[in-house]
Each structure stands twice: as C-alpha cells, then as structure tokens.
Design a protein around this nucleic acid. Sequence first.
DNA 1: TAGATTGTTAATCGATTAACAATC
DNA 2: TAGATTGTTAATCGATTAACAATC
Lengths: 221, 221
Amino acid sequence: MPTLRRLAVERLMGYHRFLAETRGRVVSGTVTSDEIAAALDLDATQVRKDLGAIGIRGRGRIGYDIDHVIGGIRTALGFDRTHLAVLVGAGHLGRALSSYRGFARYGLRIAAAFDTDPDKVGQSLGGQAIRHTRGLRGFVRHHGIRLAILATPAEVSQKIADRLTSAGIEAIWNFAPLRLTVPQGVCVHNEHISVGLSELTHHLTERDRVRSGARPGPHPS
Amino acid sequence: MPTLRRLAVERLMGYHRFLAETRGRVVSGTVTSDEIAAALDLDATQVRKDLGAIGIRGRGRIGYDIDHVIGGIRTALGFDRTHLAVLVGAGHLGRALSSYRGFARYGLRIAAAFDTDPDKVGQSLGGQAIRHTRGLRGFVRHHGIRLAILATPAEVSQKIADRLTSAGIEAIWNFAPLRLTVPQGVCVHNEHISVGLSELTHHLTERDRVRSGARPGPHPS
DNA sequence: TAGATTGTTAATCGATTAACAATC
DNA sequence: TAGATTGTTAATCGATTAACAATC
C-alpha cells in the first residue's frame, strides 16, 4: 500500500468518524458510497476511489460492509497498533492533549511527559509524574519511542526537536508555532492552529467588504 | 478582493510568519519571491501569484517590501481588525486556547468564557470569571459578538452551536470532535486535530510495511 | 430477472509550474 | 545600459467528476 496523500488521509478520517457514528444506527450493517458521500458532501466516486486505494471492496447493489470499512481504514492508518509517544511541554496545551481520551482510539499512548520547568517536574500528569527533559534522550532510546508530541514554547522547540531526533524519534507532532528543521527521514506534522483562525477572520472581513459595497479586489476572477 | 481558497490562506499565513521572522534580519527591508519560496519549499511563481491576488505588487530587480507584504496579508486576512469572540467550554483545551497570547497578533480577543459546569462557573479564566452558558445568547447579542470558539465535549456541542447561531454568531471555530450542522451563512472551521495524528501513525505504519518487505498494496501507482 | 451499486476508464476541471516579455 | 526580478500568459500536472460496463 503506497503512502496516501494528505487529503486522502483527511477524507479517510472523515469516513471513519461517520461510519463509527452510523454503525449502531444501521440495521443492515452496510452503507453505500452515495450515503457516505452525501453525509460528507463529497462525490460518491471519490469515496469509492479512496476505499479502493486501501483495498476495500464493496458489493454491487449492496454497498460496503460498515465494520469491514472501519477495520480497513484502521489498518491503513495504523490505528490497530499501539503508538507509544513522549509528550514534551506540560503547559496548558500539553495538559489538554494528555487529558483527551479520544486519542486512544487511534492507538496513541503517551508513555511519559517531560518539561524543563523545575516547578512542573514531579507534578502529576495523566497519573504519572512529569519528568525533566534531561531524561528525554535516555527514555526515548530505552523504550524505543518513535513518536513525540511537541507542545513547548517556540523558543525552545528547535532545540528539543534536535534532541528528539538525535535520540531516534521518527515522527513529531508539532504544536509549537514555528517550522522545525529535522534530518531527512523524520516526519513532522505542523499543527499550525492559527491557520484555522485566519480562515474565519478572513471570512468575516470579506463579508463586511461585500456588505459595505466595496469594489471587488484586483482579481475578481 | 474575492474570498481566498483554503490553501491560499494557509500559504499566506506561512509567508506572514516567515516575513515576521525575517524582518529584523534583513537590512534592505525587501525580499524576493525566490527567497520566500525557498524558505517554504514552494515555487516562486506561486508566491507571486498569491501576493498578486491580494493586490501586493513587487518591483523588478528588487523584490517585495517586507513591511508592505506583511501589512497586505494582515489586511487581507483581517488581522488588522479586532475580532471579539466568546469561548465556550472551559476545560483543559479551553484554558489552553485562552492562555495562548499569540492569537492577539491575529486580532482575536476573547471577550468572555462560558461553561455549563457549576463548579467551573465563577472560576477565573484569563482574568475574568467564567460565565454560565445560560447567559450566552444575551452576551452575544448585547456585545454583537460574531465569532465563537467551541471547546466543549462532543455530546453538547451541537446544542451549543444551535444556541450560538440563533443568537447571531457568524463564525464558529470548532474544536469539538464532530461535524456541526449550522444554518446557511454561518462559517464553521472544524479543527479536527486527530487528522494530524493519523498522518503520523499512517506514516510510521507504512514505513514498517516497507521495511518488513511487505508486498505493495492493491494500488502501487 | 431487473435494477441498484460498484470499480474503472475517460473527460473535465483547477491548481501548479514553466516561459518570457515588461519592469526597474 | 545590463541584468535581476516581477507579472502574466501558456503548458503541464494531478485531482475530481462523469460515464458506463461489470457485478451482485
């Protein structure tokens, strides 16, 4: 199975969520590509292509077996495995992430949380004591951790990322508001959350411009 | 200026961040599309197109004035205005969002926080007392709030969203893990954070498959 | 069987990239 | 001036959608 494109992963996540909700409500246990597409405002062909790409087949006149599709998506995206992670940064965001129980459904298990602040070290987070970042490298190596969640302030994030990658981390889920530089082969996902905000502020601003009858901008195409 | 596509907004945010960092480091005060493109791993034509689309012009042989570009992006995305928002849900995530000072740079100001839990109501959040959601509608109407940040548990989110839209909210930044149904004309941005996680778990899983020499999947294209 | 639904190939659409004349 | 860089048109590329034979 080739690596899926970003948009395909996003759509598969949408199918997964929709089907998990739908599962209990459907007597037949099956769903058509049309039903999925209608619920997520997509084209039915798109749905069939996405499912076909991860090896899921439907049946003519019947559709797709819901459990089979859910299972197939979970296998394709790796939700059927346990992904041990270290969480670095035990501020508000780190606490919010570690307290969200929904991630377990995707196989995520936070093995330990780290922080540099001596006041935070030793405090409890998710039933475990927060460790000092000094021990980060040793912990990652000893437990063979591959995934790190970075919820540190921007200033220290690159330094922590360097430490993580030198310890052998393979994937970083980056919540710090900056672009990390990492060695080839390390996968970074930047959770640049302000982008979502900017879409909404842009929308509100644009709406005002239209309402106030402002002339269209330089590119009305 | 026509409404920008999602990807264009995301790129503009990238330019904005890069230029804000670069500003102090560049003596000339200018930057070329090539430099921006190299830093963000994009095509220089893409950069020129994006900037042209929001009415920003450069100069041959010189490039773009950094301050002018930053200002243009801020105007286009609405960062030069104040966007008053209500925050609903004062759990870990709500606290994390309200404590992040970086949003102010994009014009966001959280006017008040709300929760349903009587234990939380009255507690302090960002220097203000958390209010009961009973008062949500009145507050939104009285202050003409247009934007809501939804950080509530999935079960109650649709109900809260209904209340918000009936009070006249125009945009919802939704952190609850479900798809909201809203009246036409209300703009929702779903911050489906697990998508980022799934990209990483998929990547790790796929890497293992390749390493273990698993035969390629059904669509090796 | 008839007909609803899939799986796949072909057509369309939009976004990205290349080319190059205009500009400074 | 010469040449670096923009702005814009044309070409390419990939992703989405349409069409339809195969399937159940």
